[in-house]
């Protein structure tokens, strides 16, 4: 827990495990987080290059998503956050994917932690809000904290590519999990930084960007055949 942050009485830490579980039915498994394009371009070839890829993604797109998720969990205006997410996502393929994932997550959360706030956001954004904002509202509905929401976002930012590379490269699953374990201290640090930033309001939210992720997302979206949606 971050300094000064108390667990609300309704909180259940296990809810975070449910939310962050790769088997949570929110569609995340169909996305490689840019790993498929990076494998094709030869930038991810083994455990070492996967680790560098995941580290870069964590400290850029992961930090940005975690800031948005923490801010939504803290109760900042979800529509303003959705606009902030658009401005932080120059790739139209990634904006579309984030909204599709947001819609799928909304459906799953309605069955698990119903939330009037999430219903209102879904009504205002029928094609889906950006996924990190839905994630933040889901955490809020589950009685979790902004820091918890940030944890779910940062973990997702690296677990997606690591799992995908097992399929894409035939990488040993033990090696992929080793990458995630080695990144754990940095996941802690990035989640804490995101939750801190969310306390500073909309203007303080991180906007970390990764040029190759944005560029390759568009290149990947134009492939006629691909294993993953992004």
């Amino acid at each position: 827990m971050a300094v000064g942050e108390a667990i609300p009485p309704t909180a259940s830490r296990a809810a975070l495990l449910v939310l962050a579980d790769g088997r949570f039915p929110a569609g995340g498994h169909a996305h490689s987080g840019g790993a498929e394009a990076a494998v094709k371009a030869g930038r991810v070839r083994d455990a070492g290059t996967l680790e560098a890829f995941c580290r870069g993604r964590l400290h850029t797109a992961g930090l940005t998503a975690a800031g948005l998720a923490a801010a939504a969990a803290a109760g900042l205006d979800p529509l303003a956050l959705d606009e902030a997410a658009d401005a932080r996502t120059p790739s139209p393929a990634l904006r579309a994917a984030a909204r599709r994932l947001g819609r799928q997550l909304t459906r799953a959360v309605r069955a698990t932690w119903p939330s009037p706030e999430l219903d209102a956001l879904a009504a205002a954004r029928p094609r889906g809000a950006h996924q990190p904002i839905v994630l933040g509202l889901a955490a809020r509905a589950a009685g979790l904290t902004p820091l918890d929401a940030a944890y779910a976002a940062v973990y997702e930012s690296v677990s997606g590519p690591a799992t995908a590379v097992v399929r894409l490269l035939g990488l040993d699953p033990f090696d992929a999990t080793g990458v995630l374990a080695r990144l754990a201290p940095e996941l802690d640090a990035v989640a804490a930084r995101a939750a801190d930033a969310a306390r500073g309001g909309l203007d303080a939210l991180p906007a970390g960007a990764a040029p190759l992720l944005d560029i390759m997302a568009e290149v990947h979206a134009a492939w006629p055949v691909r294993l993953f949606a992004t």
Partner: peptide, 19 residues
């Protein structure tokens, strides 16, 4: 539009395949 780009020594992952 809002983007922050960070590179160089001490910036984690800046030269990896994502950035």
């Amino acid at each position: 539009f809002d983007q922050e780009l960070c590179y160089g020594p001490g910036v984690p992952g800046w030269d990896g395949g994502a950035v």
